[in-house]
Structure formats: C-alpha cells, structure tokens
C-alpha cells in the first residue's frame, strides 16, 4: 500500500516525480515534433489539439457533471465566428478576440444551462440539439457573418510574430492546449470539480452539503462552452475559411463520440479519444490510395455499401472502430489504459 506522507501529494499537478518526468518528455517531444515530421502531420497535430480542447470541455460537462449536450458545434461556431468578426470588424488583436469570443460562448453556455436545471437525459439532449441546429441556421442568415458564403480568416499576428505556416500555428495551439489541459486537471481536483462530480453521483446529497446545484450546473455548461468556443476560434485559423455548414449536427455527435470513446470522466480519455478520432478522420481519407488494398476496398464499397456510388468505406471503418471499442471496453480508451496498467503492475500474476 502506498502511504500518504503529505497532502501536497494529492494537490500537486503531477502526482509523482515519474509523472513529471514523462510530462517533460512529452513537452520536449511536442516541442521538436514539427522538425521531425512533415507538414501533413503538423496539420494533423493541430487538428488533434483543437479536438482535445473540445473533448476536455465536453467531458467536464458530460463525463464529470453528468449533463449531456448535442449542441457543442454551436459553441464551436460561436468561437470561430466571434474570433474572426471581432478581428475584422472591431480590429481587436487575435488573442483578445479569441478570449472574448470564448467568453461569449461561455455566456451562451450559461443560458443553455438554465433549461438543464429542469431537464435530464434524453430531454436535455434534445434541448441542446435544438440549440446546436439553431445557431448555424441563424449565422447562415446574417450577412454580417458572411451568410452562406462564409468568412475568410484574416492574417494572424501576435505582437510582431506572424503566424503564416502550420508550424507557427502549431506552437501557439500546443501551448494553449497544454495550459488548458492542466487547468482542467486543477479544476477537477478542487472545489468546482468535486461539486461537478457530486452533482453527477448524488445531486440531492450534494445539495444537503451546501452545493448550489443551479450555480454549478450552469457553471459546468459555461466552462464547457468556454473550452469549445476557444477551440472554435482556433479552428477558424486552421481552416482559414469558415461557413455555417461546417458546424453541423454530425460535428456535435463526433465531439460526443470522442468523449465517450476516450472514457467519460477522464481527462486522459478525452485526450486519447480526441486524438484517435481526429487521426482516423484524416487518415481514413487516404485509405483508398493505399496500393492494392485501396483499390479493393473502393470496389467493395461501391458494389456493396454505397448508395450514391461515392465510396463510403472510410465511414464504415470509422464506425466499426467506434463500435468495437465500446463493445470491448465500455469505459473507452481510458478503461483499456487502466487494464493495461493493472496488468503490468501485477505481472506475472
């Protein structure tokens, strides 16, 4: 049994020296990553980092607080449109615009949290679904936001640093993602995070201990929307062009899938789930160009699966991987990680 000698062990950001060591190794790897891999992988890493932010934000809401949301593409859109319009129309610097847009998303998250005080489970999911669908419809109708034509992202400059390549943007993105991941870790270890989990596990008991459920449920929505809005603002500069159709219902569902596949109520799971599904999403697009196998898969897809004649084998593989993970490990990747850890700890028994 491990003995606790000092309560700071509970409170520290890194549980032990070993964890700190591996964290520093990871940071070093992330720092050299763009020099080790070609540009496509830097783009993939950017895409992953954004999804990690969303997954962590969504997990704080779904996994930790136990409130479901099918409308997170809405917050993502608010972050993206907010950042661009604040930069082009109000001429604010990028970081200020990004944070303001995320705060805007958080305020809307707070408002969306209000019906959550009365709704649960399937009812809440439909309410949030309505929100997600409405946001893109509204944005698509407003000329100021470019309407159906969409918006182009302006040039990106932070002080005197011109971020004109994927590699430059990578460093900005990784810094933000690492900081916000550590912030989320702190949150779940302190008062606010404990209140979130308490609401999920036994809300009446939480109330009788002095937890204001109204406050913390809406706060969970606001924090979650803040993370997602921030990710949306960054995503606008990965794509360099945004239009309402991007922020679809499917996007909300993929966000939720990342959280569930990764493992509900686990930050590690969110990171793993977001990375896996982002990687599959981009990588499976290339599946048809694999020699021999690609051609065979395309033929298989066209003759058996596709309705329209367009190859859809990517989606089928994507879906079956999701199904198999959930089938073999309901706790998602986090569950697989726990089992592996336990296996090595108790090996050879």
């Amino acid at each position: 049994m491990d003995m606790k000698r000092d309560y700071y062990e509970d409170v520290r950001l890194f549980g032990s020296k070993v964890v700190l060591f591996w964290f520093l190794v990871l940071i070093a790897f992330l720092g050299f990553f763009p020099f080790l891999f070609r540009n496509y992988y830097v783009y993939l890493a950017n895409y992953m980092a954004i999804n990690v932010l969303v997954a962590i934000g969504l997990n704080l809401l779904v996994g930790y607080t136990g409130q479901i949301s099918l409308g997170h593409a809405g917050f993502f859109a608010i972050g993206a449109y907010g950042t661009i319009t604040l930069m082009t129309s109000a001429h604010l610097p990028f970081l200020v615009a990004l944070v303001l847009a995320a705060i805007g998303a958080a305020l809307l998250g707070f408002l969306l949290g209000l019906p959550a005080l009365r709704l649960e489970g399937p009812y809440l999911s439909i309410a949030t679904l309505g929100f997600g669908l409405t946001i893109t419809q509204v944005i698509g109708r407003i000329g100021f936001f470019g309407g159906r034509q969409g918006l182009h992202a302006p040039e990106l400059t932070i002080f005197s640093w011109h971020l004109d390549s994927d590699r430059d943007f990578y460093y900005l993105l990784i810094t933000i993602t690492v900081i916000l991941t550590l912030v989320a870790r702190n949150l779940v270890k302190t008062k606010v995070g404990r209140a979130f989990i308490a609401i999920r596990d036994a809300d009446i008991a939480a109330e009788t201990l002095g937890v204001n459920i109204m406050l913390y449920k809406t706060l969970a929505f606001a924090v979650s929307a803040f993370y997602t809005g921030l990710a949306g603002g960054l995503y606008a500069f990965v794509l360099r062009f945004i239009e309402p159709q991007i922020f679809s219902l499917l996007m909300s569902i993929i966000f939720l899938a990342m959280v569930v596949v990764g493992g509900l109520g686990s930050l590690f799971g969110s990171i793993a789930g977001a990375c896996l599904l982002s990687w599959l999403d981009l990588e499976l697009r290339n599946i048809l160009s694999i020699p021999y196998l690609g051609g065979w898969l395309e033929a298989l897809s066209k003759s058996y699966f596709s309705i329209t004649g367009v190859s859809n084998i990517q989606l089928i593989i994507y879906g079956s991987i999701m199904v198999s993970i959930m089938l073999f490990e309901p706790l998602g990747i986090y569950g697989i990680w726990i089992r592996t850890k336990l296996y090595w700890k108790t090996w050879p028994f």
Binding site: N186, L187, V192, R194, D201, A205, L219
Partner: peptide
C-alpha cells in the same frame, strides 16, 4: 454517497461551504 470518489474526496465535499478558492483560483 458520491460513489466514484474516494472517502477523502467524499468528506472534502463536506468542506465545500468552507472552501473559498472557486473556479479561477482553483
């Protein structure tokens, strides 16, 4: 009880009303 938390964390929720550090300071 909050079944997915440890005994210590369950009892820490009892301290909820005394802990001052909220979202930002946390």
């Amino acid at each position: 009880l909050f079944t997915h938390m440890s005994t210590m964390e369950n009892l820490m929720l009892g301290r909820h009303r005394y802990i001052k550090a909220g979202l930002l300071r946390g």
